[in-house]
């Protein structure tokens, strides 16, 4: 069944079509949720809530724009909603953060994907959201500031801090690679 037919059937609350839609997009939305959440469990919760919302709102999808993009926006919004519900009281600011956020491409290449994802997930919630929204999903700082109800400057600062933290975390790996390269 092609996507259009699946969507049409989903609009009629057909369970079979809903199952097909889930099977088609579960992995993509799960990976997206993994990036936005702090662990796999949270990501599964986010995925579940996202699909329920998708099936609920699918009648409002008029076929304008990418359906995948529409679904992704729902999943991102769900993650943001969760963040807003459990807003962190404060974020500890580390003044030793690096100014330069560029890394050696080879060094990053050698790091397993799971490890990189883990580092992203370990970021403070707001830094993680800003990093993902800006870097991975192409939101502007203005859009981020609206979504997260923060100022544009805070968004920029949060992004920089997120990158600095990630660089610091990836540093030991990079050092080991460097030392390996020097051999």
């Amino acid at each position: 069944m092609d996507l259009e037919k699946i969507i049409k059937s989903c609009k009629r609350n057909n369970l079979k079509a809903q199952s097909q839609l889930y099977q088609k997009y579960k992995d993509d939305l799960y990976v997206l949720s993994l990036k936005y959440c702090s662990n796999a469990e949270e990501a599964e919760d986010n995925l579940q809530d996202s699909f329920l919302e998708i099936f609920k709102k699918i009648k409002t999808y008029k076929g304008i724009g990418s359906f995948e993009g529409w679904m992704k926006r729902i999943a991102i919004n769900k993650a943001i909603d969760k963040y807003k519900k459990v807003k962190p009281i404060s974020i500890s600011i580390n003044n030793d953060l690096l100014e330069d956020t560029s890394v050696n491409a080879k060094a990053v290449d050698s790091i397993p994907l799971d490890e990189i994802l883990q580092h992203v997930q370990d970021l403070p919630a707001r830094y993680r959201l800003v990093f993902n929204l800006y870097e991975m999903d192409g939101y502007s700082h203005k859009e981020i500031s609206k979504l997260l109800e923060i100022s544009v400057n805070t968004s920029k600062s949060n992004l920089h801090r997120a990158k600095s933290i990630l660089k610091q975390k990836l540093q030991p790996s990079r050092s080991s690679i460097n030392s390996f390269e020097s051999l």
Partner: peptide, 23 residues
């Protein structure tokens, strides 16, 4: 030869290939 890239775009590129399935 060292190629320095922004960590943000580097991570984004790497994670684009990440695959995982939910339970």
């Amino acid at each position: 030869m060292k190629i320095n890239r922004d960590i943000g775009s580097e991570i984004t590129n790497k994670l684009e290939n990440y695959k995982s399935s939910p339970d």
